[in-house]
Design a protein around this nucleic acid. Structure first.
Length: 500
RNA sequence: CGGGGUGUAGCGCAGCUUGGUAGCGCGCCUGCUUUGGGAGCAGGAGGUCGUCGGUUCGAAUCCGGCCACCCCGACCA
């Protein structure tokens, strides 16, 4: 596997000052930084086929932490998990006209199996509205069968023309919630409920402040009536959609005949919703928090929250190791994910390595500390000295152990606040075309828009920016379209940005 | 699908112009010394040069075909 290097290739006569473990600085080239970091932090590796990825244990642990915390939220809102088939008969996709049209370019289709050509091709699911709709039709006949509130954790395949690890891979992991309701009001309420769950999760778990809003018609999910998304800002000012919730109306109910008799014995179509969050969220975490030294993981998603680096050899080693392991046990008991790095490598190497891997807190423990009864602790993102290195804090053993949970929370808040101010500094309300062009080059532009797709396309071809969403929070406002000058639509401003 | 690259040791690269049987850095293994911000010395292992064909006494190198992957644009979570 080749890791693309920065602008300049490695010169054997003048190796990188940072050594082989360093990455191209974020500030220099975000794209190169991201590509190298994903590999060097051991989050993932490329798979053998185009656009495929192997999620390595460290990256998968992040996914597991994300999964468990999100799943808990689904359970808390009354949902249950189930599993639906990977293969979907092609004809199912074709039943919802907009749905096939939207997905056909990225379908992987199985035409042969068992050594024979299949009667009907099978699609590897790009999403499961269709199979699930088919099953719901069988399960629903009375209003008493509703609502159905099911989620599935699964892999899906969308053939990508231009893959990017975590952000756009041919196969990715996600969860897809699919619900069916008796009334439109109830289905709409569900759509917004889960939309809010995603936003709350992004803020409180991933420490990413997100803009919540409805998608414009041009950006809507194929087959949906309304699509809502959360949009985070990455360190290069680009937007990343990291969760979507759709109100599907009766589109899929009609296509799959999900009908029920209501209290008045009238036959009605159910109203359905779907909502998903994927491994792309890991990409969002990398791109929203990372810095020149590497990954920065928010503590609630960090596989290791505190790493202890024992220092010293010979006679001292044993005592240091014993103390390290005692401190680790006490932290574990306090619910902290802690790791003692007893690898046979120099302390300096370990410091840099754990910084690259984004561990929130690093603790040094050596003979001098043992004697003084304290540890030296450095926070991954915090105060730095004139060499750009973390300022180390001296903490007594008990104080260190007892204070850790609170520090982790405070650190989460710090990252969230840092991301929020970054976003705010790179966002602006814009009413002038030239200013718009300049703003979308660096971040989010809140502007009025006519709502026409041809105008959206024009803006995209001029600036590479697209409407990300119509923010829920924006106040009522109308006026002239930023691009064409016609009357604005939506009654609100739209967030435009370049997007991943 | 367009445009641009790249395929040589686990990783990053040089060698190719001017053919003579492969080299550097990092990593890896062994030993000794080291360990508070990417350790040092010594020894060692590791490559049918993407693939198929052609030219030649001889091809990593020249010629042709194929394949793969990466990067930049159009679709997407």
């Amino acid at each position: 596997m080749r890791v693309p290097m920065a602008a300049k290739k490695n010169d054997t006569k003048a190796p990188r000052a940072r050594g082989d473990l360093g990455v191209t600085p974020l500030s220099e080239d975000v794209s190169a930084w991201y590509n190298e970091l994903v590999f060097k932090a051991e989050l993932a590796d490329r798979g053998p086929s185009k656009g495929s990825m192997v999620i390595r244990p460290y990256g998968y642990r992040v996914w597991e932490l994300l999964q468990s915390q999100l799943d808990q939220r689904f359970k808390d809102t009354g949902h249950v998990n189930a599993s639906f088939p990977l293969f979907i008969p092609m004809s199912y996709l074709e039943r919802e006209a907009e749905h096939v049209e939207g997905f056909s370019p990225e379908l992987a289709v199985v035409t042969h199996a068992g050594g024979k050509k299949l009667e009907e091709p099978l699609v590897v699911r790009p999403t499961s509205e269709t199979v699930i709709g088919e099953m719901y039709a069988k399960w629903v006949s009375s209003y008493r069968d509703l609502p159905i509130l099911i989620n599935q954790w699964a892999n899906v395949v969308r053939w990508e023309l231009r893959p990017r690890i975590f952000l756009r891979t041919t196969e990715f992991l996600w969860q897809e919630g699919h619900t069916a309701h008796a009334t439109e009001a109830e289905a709409r309420e569900e759509t917004i409920r889960m939309f809010d769950v995603y936003a709350e999760f992004a803020n409180n778990v991933a420490a990413i402040p997100v803009v919540q809003g409805e998608k414009t018609p041009g950006e809507r999910f194929a087959g949906a009536v309304n699509t809502y998304s959360i949009e985070g800002m990455m360190r290069d000012g680009k937007a990343l959609q990291s969760g979507t919730s759709h109100y599907l109306g009766t589109n899929f109910a009609k296509a799959f005949d999900i009908t029920f008799q209501d209290e008045n014995s009238q036959l009605q179509h159910a109203h359905t919703t779907s909502w998903g969050m994927s491994t792309r969220m890991i990409g969002a975490v990398i791109l929203a928090h990372g810095d020149d030294a590497g990954l920065v993981l928010p503590p609630r998603l960090a596989p290791i929250q505190v790493v202890i680096v024992p220092i010293g050899r010979g006679d001292q080693a044993e005592a240091v190791a014993a103390k390290a392991s005692e401190l680790a046990d006490r932290l574990k008991a306090a619910g902290v994910r802690v790791h003692v790095d007893d690898r046979d490598a120099s302390p300096g190497f370990k410091f840099n390595d754990w910084e690259l891997k984004g561990v929130p807190f690093r603790v040094e423990l050596g003979p001098r500390d043992l004697e003084a009864g304290h540890v030296l602790m450095a926070q991954r993102v915090g105060e730095v000295d004139d060499k750009g290195r973390a300022v180390k804090e001296t903490l007594g053993f008990d104080e260190f152990v007892a204070g850790m949970p609170v520090r982790l929370d405070a650190y989460h808040d710090h990252l969230h606040e840092r991301a929020r101010s970054f976003r705010d500094e790179h966002s602006a309300t814009i009413d002038d075309w030239d200013a718009f062009v300049a703003q979308v080059a660096v971040g989010f532009a809140y502007a009025l828009h006519c709502g026409e797709e041809s105008c959206e396309d024009d803006i995209k071809s001029q600036t590479a920016a697209t409407p990300r969403c119509i923010p829920t929070e924006s106040g009522e406002e109308t006026g002239a379209c930023i691009r064409c000058g016609k009357d604005s639509a939506y009654g609100k401003r739209v967030v435009f940005a370049r997007a991943y």
